[in-house]
Every structure is written in structure tokens, then in C-alpha cells.
């Protein structure tokens, strides 16, 4: 009789596709077809979660390249965390390394940036922070779920231009590389994740609120009328990047 550890090693090798199903099944004394059910399940959990986390990357690459990538990711990046979504966290960096190694036919650095944004969307959606209502605030604050991403491509623009993932496919050209900041946060009063490209006025508002700089001082520093500075902060409040008390006018 095999020890539990011996049995576990054989099952592990079969699930990781390091051992042929028939060979493993013979060692375990099980029906190869039944062992194959588990092999399929374990692989499909990873492929399913990648499908869920990276719908735009998947759609833009097309089904064949995507399937090849998922199979390679499963082989090379075993799931290490008990939470299923976490097994997709390493995907953008893995994709980047694959391209750098010249092992990514059909894959472009744009897809790395797209994957980075898609992963961050998940992180922001699940962020532990609560987005407070304005009446609970004494001064303007940044949305506590805010995440800033420095991306090598204008990914936010790409998604804004293609709001339905069903409209995305391999025929859509990859945008030109251009480094852009992306701002992601949960929209107040909802659970939806908002994306914004880091425009001058939003980044200005972010700095003003983060550093609690009086508007007049901030306006003077950028040689703009205070009304312009105020408009920038108002825009940030309107989109939910900045949260403000109802009497913000007195700030």
C-alpha cells in the first residue's frame, strides 16, 4: 500500500501535467478517465479565472493565442494562494517576461499594460476601504480606493473607446505606445470601478487634496486663476476621485 505522501505525489504530478494520465492512473489504481476529470477541473479553474479577470486581453488576442497563453501560464505559474482570483495576479508580469524572452508570438507589450489595468480593476473592486459619504467628512479627501497606475500605453482611452468587451477583437489595432497615468477608484455610492486617464486637472486636484494645499496657494503655484483651480477640484469631486463634505465651498 502506498503512503499518503506517495499517493499525493502521483496525484500532484498528474494534475500538474507532469505525468501521463494513464501512468498515474495505473499507479493509483484508478480509472484514467476519472483521473482525467480532475486534471480538467484543476486546469479549468485557472483558465476560468483568467478569462474572468482579463476579458479585454483575451478578446484582443483572440481565442487561439489566449488558449496557448493560458496553457503556458498554468504550466509555469502554479497557483500558490488559497483564494482563486489570486492565481491570476502574476499574469501581467508573466506576460511581460514572456515577451521580453521573445516567447510571445502574437502578444504585444500593449497587452501587458491592458492586463495591468484589468488586474487593478479587480483589486480596486475588492478594496477593503469604505468610500465615505460626504456628510461624514470634515474636509476634502482622496477616494480611499484610489489606485494610480503608470502604464506604457493609453489603455484607459482604449477601453473608453471600446466600452463593450464584445466589440474588441484581434482586428482592432494596438494603440501607439504613450506613457499615461491611469486613475482607478470605486465610484461613491456604487460598487463600480471608475477609470480615468490622468489628465492635468485631475492630477492637479489629486495633489491639492492629498497635500491639503489651500486652493489660492495651489492656483498661484501653477499661475492660474483660482476659478480654474476650483474647477479642477470640482471635476475631481464630480467623478468621485475626491470626496468632499457638503459645505466644501467654505474650504
Amino acid at each position: 500500500m502506498a503512503s499518503l505522501k506517495d499517493l499525493a505525489e502521483t496525484v500532484h504530478a498528474a494534475l500538474r501535467r507532469e505525468l501521463d494520465t494513464d501512468v498515474a492512473a495505473a499507479r493509483l489504481g484508478v480509472d484514467p478517465a476519472r483521473l482525467g476529470i480532475y486534471r480538467g477541473f484543476v486546469h479549468d479553474h485557472v483558465s476560468g479565472i483568467l478569462d474572468k479577470l482579463y476579458p479585454y486581453v483575451r478578446a484582443h488576442l483572440g481565442s487561439q493565442i489566449w488558449a496557448e497563453l493560458v496553457a503556458a501560464y498554468f504550466r509555469e505559474v502554479p497557483a500558490r494562494h488559497w483564494e482563486l482570483n489570486a492565481c491570476g495576479e502574476a499574469f501581467p508580469a508573466w506576460l511581460d517576461a514572456r515577451i521580453a524572452a521573445g516567447d510571445g508570438p502574437g502578444v504585444d507589450p500593449f497587452h501587458v499594460a491592458l492586463a495591468e489595468l484589468e488586474w487593478e480593476q479587480f483589486v480596486v473592486y475588492m478594496h477593503a476601504a469604505t468610500v465615505p459619504a460626504g456628510e461624514h467628512l470634515e474636509a476634502p479627501v482622496l477616494n480611499p480606493t484610489l489606485s494610480l497606475l503608470d502604464l506604457a500605453y493609453p489603455v484607459v482611452r482604449f477601453i473608453v473607446d471600446h466600452p463593450e468587451v464584445g466589440d474588441v477583437g484581434p482586428a482592432i489595432p494596438v494603440p501607439a505606445a504613450a506613457r499615461r497615468l491611469a486613475l482607478l477608484f470605486r465610484r461613491p455610492g456604487t460598487w463600480r470601478v471608475a477609470y480615468y486617464q490622468g489628465s492635468d486637472d485631475l492630477l492637479f486636484a489629486l495633489k491639492v487634496v492629498h497635500e491639503q494645499i489651500p486652493l489660492a496657494v495651489a492656483a498661484e503655484a501653477v499661475h492660474q486663476p483660482i476659478a480654474v483651480a476650483r474647477a479642477a477640484v470640482d471635476h475631481a469631486i464630480a467623478v468621485g476621485l475626491v470626496l468632499a463634505p457638503p459645505d466644501f465651498a467654505a474650504w
Binding site: L4, H12, V42, H45, P78
Partner: peptide, 19 residues
């Protein structure tokens, strides 16, 4: 899970005294 890898599936144990 085993050997540091999560399967995210439920694998049966052998019905043995050791288990």
C-alpha cells in the same frame, strides 16, 4: 493543495487508517 500548489478542487483521500 499539496507541495505548495493550490488545486482549487477537492481531491479524494484514500480510505485508509493513515488518512
Amino acid at each position: 493543495s499539496n507541495f505548495g500548489v493550490e488545486y482549487h478542487d477537492l481531491l479524494p483521500l484514500p480510505f485508509t487508517e493513515e488518512a
